[in-house]
């Protein structure tokens, strides 16, 4: 755990963990509101947004990308609503139509345009490039105190940290209305909570988390972290507060364990090269969910016996 770790692993590990937290927090509410697949849809439509932003500005710098992706997410939400209302189509199918079409559009646009000199391709969009977010300026733990080295931290780290902090603060500030409108929308309406605005805000927050995480770690982690840690946490407890803490714990565990297994696992097994960290983090979160489905204390529905007898 010396200088190599600080240079090669510290920042990707932190970024992965922050991305996992940023996605798991809104994920808790999404799965309780039966909107779990919104994360899936958003992470698909981010691609056309980013490509359009690139075509307009010609760069892959942060803000155009973020704006493009957020714009695409909003277009997708409007498109889904339009299909649902105009065609009286059930939400799942409406979502399927919208996000596949937008994703296809994004891929087509990407393949048509000249992106050979920038790092923008479908594979990157899908599984990100966590391993490449190296801290070049560091030469050991001491660099954490070295102002010059700190300036060379990958910009993704600061961005991800800021987004995670914003999402955590939003969750705290809107905790009460969010909780009430999630569990009892009718009651929330009668006591004056703007439930529609809360619902839309949640989706936008999820989109922001997805976009920020997508930039650093790719869309697989985004979808997995929206769903797996909160779902596993849901099986651990009946209290929302406890569920949030469990989901954060599972998210961090997935990120750290997944990153370590991806980086060092193949070496232990006699291999030479690391495997995809994003893929491994998703896999670990799936294993955690699987274990929760088998052994967690609150895995059955209320009223059903915990053990089949």
């Amino acid at each position: 755990m010396g200088a190599d770790f600080v240079i090669l692993s510290l920042t990707p590990l932190l970024i992965g963990t922050l991305a996992a937290i940023a996605c798991a927090l809104p994920g808790n509410f999404l799965i309780l509101r039966r909107q779990a697949l919104i994360g899936d849809a958003i992470s698909h439509v981010v691609l056309p947004g980013i490509v359009v932003a690139f075509l307009i500005t010609g760069t892959t710098s942060t803000w155009p990308m973020m704006l493009g992706a957020a714009g695409a997410a909003i277009v997708a939400v409007i498109l889904i609503e339009a299909i649902k209302r105009l065609g009286r189509i059930e939400p799942g199918a409406a979502m399927g139509v919208a996000f596949t079409a937008l994703f296809a559009f994004g891929v087509l646009l990407l393949e048509q345009s000249d992106t050979s000199n920038v790092h923008l391709d479908v594979e990157h969009a899908l599984y990100g490039n966590l391993e490449s977010l190296i801290w070049f300026g560091a030469d050991g733990w001491g660099s954490l105190l070295d102002r010059q080295a700190l300036a060379e931290l990958p910009p993704e780290l600061g961005r991800m940290a800021a987004v995670t902090a914003v999402i955590a603060i939003l969750t705290l500030v809107f905790w009460r209305p969010l909780k009430i409108s999630t569990f009892d929308e009718g009651f929330a309406g009668t006591i004056g909570i703007p439930t529609a605005a809360i619902g839309f805000g949640l989706v936008v927050t999820a989109a922001v988390a997805a976009v920020a995480a997508f930039d650093a770690v790719g869309s697989i982690i985004v979808i997995a972290m929206f769903i797996c840690p909160p779902a596993a946490a849901r099986l651990m407890t009946n209290r929302l507060e406890a569920q949030i803490w469990w989901s954060l714990f599972f998210a961090i565990l997935s990120a750290v364990l997944g990153f370590v297994l991806a980086g060092y696992g193949p070496l232990w097994l006699g291999g030479e090269d690391a495997v995809s960290a994003a893929g491994m983090i998703a896999t670990v979160s799936g294993v955690i969910l699987g274990l929760a489905c088998l052994y967690a204390p609150h895995r059955t529905r209320i009223g059903a016996p915990a053990t089949p007898d």
């Binding site: 899936d40 697989i220 982690i221 997995a224 779902a231 896999t283 979160s285």
Partner: peptide, 13 residues
Amino acid sequence: GAVLSVFFGFGIV
């Protein structure tokens, strides 16, 4: 969502 993301992630690995 869970199956989709986890299987896909494992596939990428």
